[in-house]
């Protein structure tokens, strides 16, 4: 697919500019129609020498319930890499509309820990454009290395869905798989998410997507209320898994129903151990305690 050298950006793209661009592009598309071609951009983007801000890191760690250590939480690295990934989706040759894309799934491999003192090179590229029963999906793959280093320390695959967009040349997905019946277990925790949960995460992650910020801004984009960032929820679940996950792990999450704010979120974390009682995996699932609808589920497993 796109194996070429990435385009090196001079500085970290500004997310707010990207959102403005995306809005402009959406307007353009409405007038001019979709760009020709159904292929993904053949190049990725790279930003070098990215340095985490320690104040921001601390605020992030406190918000999601991690101890403020020097190691960057896997979700924090996702937030660092997010503008790079966004910039790829913001390219003119990107075939799908950025605004309104739905985060379906996220998989992170934290291969070895990254400290805030280490400058990072972050690459992102789009892959695996494919059909979804209700649109078109693709993977945004981001990789993080310590500047100048070869080894990928962190690799994230975010799967997004452009709902209702069907590109020519991509077969429609076969009949939709009925989601399994979900029966909420007894919770191990219940989070009380305030109406400001979206703003609070935006402040530490830089992701000021209007659908997360307020009822008004969310309504402007067709949501009935603001919704919690998916990666905020997943990062809290990761934090709740605790120290058992160690330095290197695989962390995945599948998002289902969004969490409209404010809301309680029921959570169940269960641990899977080896016969020798060593930690193997923690599975988590979250739901709405009132309706019983599943919000997301995932697991954290030893790499």
């Amino acid at each position: 697919m796109n194996t070429g050298q990435p385009i090196i950006l001079g500085e970290m793209p500004s997310l707010s500019k990207l959102y403005v661009n995306a809005a402009a592009a959406a307007a353009r598309r409405r007038i001019l129609g979709s760009p020709a071609g159904a292929g993904l951009p053949s190049v990725g983007h790279e930003v070098r020498g990215v340095q985490a801000d320690v104040g921001n890191l601390t605020a992030y760690q406190h918000l999601i319930g991690e101890t403020a250590s020097d190691v960057l939480p896997a979700g924090f690295i996702h937030a660092l890499a997010f503008p790079v990934a966004m910039s790829v989706m913001n390219r003119d040759d990107f075939p799908l509309p950025l605004l309104g894309m739905i985060h379906l799934r996220n998989v992170v491999e934290q291969r070895s820990p990254v400290r805030f003192t280490e400058p990072l090179d972050i690459t992102a590229r789009a892959e695996a454009l494919r059909a979804h029963r209700s649109g078109t999906q693709l993977d945004l793959v981001a990789e993080v290395r310590v500047s100048g280093g070869e080894a990928v320390r962190w690799r994230g695959i975010s799967t997004y869905l452009a709902k209702g967009v069907f590109l020519p040349g991509i077969d429609k997905a076969s009949a939709s798989v009925r989601p399994e019946d979900f029966k909420a277990p007894d919770p191990t925790a219940v989070w009380q998410l305030g109406v400001d949960a979206g703003r609070a995460y935006a402040a530490v992650s830089g992701d000021f997507n209007p659908i997360h910020l307020s009822v008004l801004s969310a309504k402007a984009l067709g949501m009935r209320r603001s919704i919690a960032h998916g990666m905020y929820l997943a990062s809290r679940a990761l934090a709740d898994v605790g120290a058992a996950k160690g330095d290197s792990f695989r962390w995945d999450v599948t998002f289902e129903a969004p969490v409209f704010l404010p809301a309680p979120v029921g959570l169940d974390i269960s641990t899977v151990q080896t016969d020798g009682a060593a930690w193997l995996r923690s599975d988590y699932v979250a739901w709405n305690p009132r309706s019983g609808r599943k919000h997301f589920s995932g697991s954290v497993a030893a790499l």
Binding site: T188, D240, S270, T271
Partner: peptide, 10 residues
Amino acid sequence: AAAVDFVHGK
């Protein structure tokens, strides 16, 4: 003294 892992529902 003892402690249990209630966080993960054990």
